[in-house]
Simulated assay, not measured.
Amino acid sequence: MKPAFFKSLVVAASIASAGWLATTTTTLAQEVTLRLHQFLPPQANVPKLVLDPWADKVEAESGGRIKIERYPAMQLGGTPPQLIDQAQDGTVDIVWTLPGSTPGRFPSTEVFELPFMMTNAEATSRAYWDLFESRMKDTEFKDVHVIGVWVHGPGMLHSKTPIEKLEDLTGMKVRAPTRIINTLLGTLGATPVGMPVPQITEALSKGVIDACVIPWEVTPALKVPELVENHTEFGGDHALYTTTFVLAMNKAKYDSLPDDLKKVLDDNSGQEFAAFAGRTQAGADGPSRQIAVDRGNNIITLDEAEVARWQEAAQPVIDNWVAEMDGKGLDGKGLLEEARALIEKYTAAQ
């Protein structure tokens, strides 16, 4: 009897132990759900071509252990300028946003938004990542875990009346995305109106603004080609402006992940992701431009001589920014020179 009794105990203990191990293994391998919050509708190019493919890739490479819930158009509440705080305090897990939506908080990023700095989105995004790693990661962005930083394609003007020369901008109410672009427009003679990109459609339709600055790629989602008939592009190797973006994660959430899942995120972060995001977002410029062309809209391209006039008029924006950064102890001249050198390096390598 005793041997059989003890044998039963051993079997029971083995079964219980196996069950505990299975439960523990399941617990260790359980799914992690991350909430991704951003300000554009899901059909817009960045969610469709950048954020969704990134999230899909992370999910696949995690073997289904990471699930990324996507919340477009501020569905989880708040306003676009509040997104970075939502990532920082853990209201959500990941956000895509503009550092410039919170003026003064990420001053070093503004170097890439200065007038006539950027060449193309991929080269500038690579430069942005390098400068982020060397100057911003442990300072301005120390409270979040950054997955990627990038810029959009050439920024340009979309207006109800034609802008064919610098003087045409005088007094025009023009929407801008960030502090630097507001300053630029004001310096060039316009009346700048700062607002998040989702508000452009209503502002144009109600006459709150006469024009806006955005890249081509986002114009279809905002119905801009239907609301204005004129689009002003800038000839030459450098765009009027660009805007900086960041894909940021709650730091505690990232730190809580097991090492293998951190590696999945790390493998989909960094300079190559930055280059992909910038290149892909800018790649949507052409098809979006064609929509305006097909509508018969007026596409204006300023020639080299006229662009030179805009560059000269915009120079005080650069000079004043350098002085302002120097005043903050951020080495404005050094930031400017390093950003220009990196952009030149990556543009030449293409």
Results as ranks from 00 to 15, higher is better:
R135G: 01
K137W: 02
K137N: 02
K137Y: 01
D138L: 01
D138E: 06
T139H: 07
T139W: 02
T139V: 03
F141S: 02
F141A: 03
F141H: 03
K142L: 00
D143A: 11
V144T: 11
H145R: 12
H145N: 09
V146I: 12
G148E: 04
G148Q: 04
G148T: 06
V149K: 03
V149C: 00
V151Y: 00
V151K: 02
V151C: 02
H152G: 01
H152A: 01
P154N: 04
M156K: 10
L157S: 00
H158S: 00
I163D: 00
E164N: 14
E164A: 12
K165Y: 01
L166F: 08
L166V: 11
L166M: 11
L166R: 10
E167V: 04
E167A: 13
E167L: 04
D168A: 04
L169K: 00
T170Q: 15
T170L: 06
G171K: 06
M172S: 02
V174Q: 09
V174T: 13
R175Q: 15
A176K: 05
A176L: 08
A176V: 13
P177W: 07
P177S: 09
P177M: 11
T178A: 08
R179M: 08
R179D: 13
R179N: 14
I180C: 07
I180P: 05
I180N: 11
I180T: 15
I181R: 11
N182K: 12
L184A: 02
L185N: 05
L185F: 14
G186S: 11
T187Q: 14
T187A: 06
L188I: 02
T191N: 14
T191E: 15
P192L: 12
V193K: 15
M195S: 14
M195T: 06
V197K: 03
P198N: 10
P198K: 10
Q199W: 08
Q199Y: 10
I200T: 14
I200A: 13
I200Y: 03
I200H: 10
T201C: 04
A203Y: 05
A203R: 11
L204A: 05
S205N: 15
S205W: 05
S205G: 12
K206A: 14
G207N: 10
G207L: 10
V208I: 14
I209N: 00
I209E: 02
D210K: 09
A211G: 09
